[in-house]
């Protein structure tokens, strides 16, 4: 059995990856795929949606003789990420309490 995880967690992971440093689509996809079973074609709509929501913006930077598109966090994205991190802690605590019991101190 595996735990299905929702779109919100995916958004949160993407924002968190981009928060470390501005980076590009392929790298973001690989980092998400390192922890989650997710198709390569799933990430583009996530990035595009976060961009449209104003959480990410893009800039082009030359790399190996071509322009590479980088994603970076906006102020709104920073706020959204902070919200996601808080919600994740609450969610994780609730799940831990039910799944692992009270004696488990996390």
């Amino acid at each position: 059995m595996a735990f299905n995880t929702g779109a919100a967690l995916m958004d949160a992971l993407v924002l968190s990856i981009v928060a470390q440093e501005p980076t590009y689509g392929y790298k973001i996809t690989q980092e998400v795929r390192a922890v989650m079973v997710v198709s390569e074609s799933t990430l583009y709509p996530v990035l595009r949606r976060l961009q449209k929501d104003g959480c990410l913006d893009t800039y082009d930077q030359e790399f190996a003789g071509r322009n590479r598109r980088y994603y970076r966090l906006t102020e709104a994205g920073r706020q959204r990420l902070a919200d996601y991190r808080r919600e994740w802690r609450d969610y994780r605590r609730s799940i831990d309490r039910l799944l692992l019991g009270e004696e488990e101190n996390i």
Binding site: A2, N4, A8, M10
Partner: peptide, 24 residues
């Protein structure tokens, strides 16, 4: 729909659960 997301290191869903992405 894109396939349901799963955490790495865990086995795939059982048939009964496949495709139900409740959190979405």
């Amino acid at each position: 729909e894109p396939a349901p997301l799963r955490i790495r290191g865990l086995a795939p869903d059982t048939a009964a659960c496949t495709g139900t992405d409740a959190a979405a």
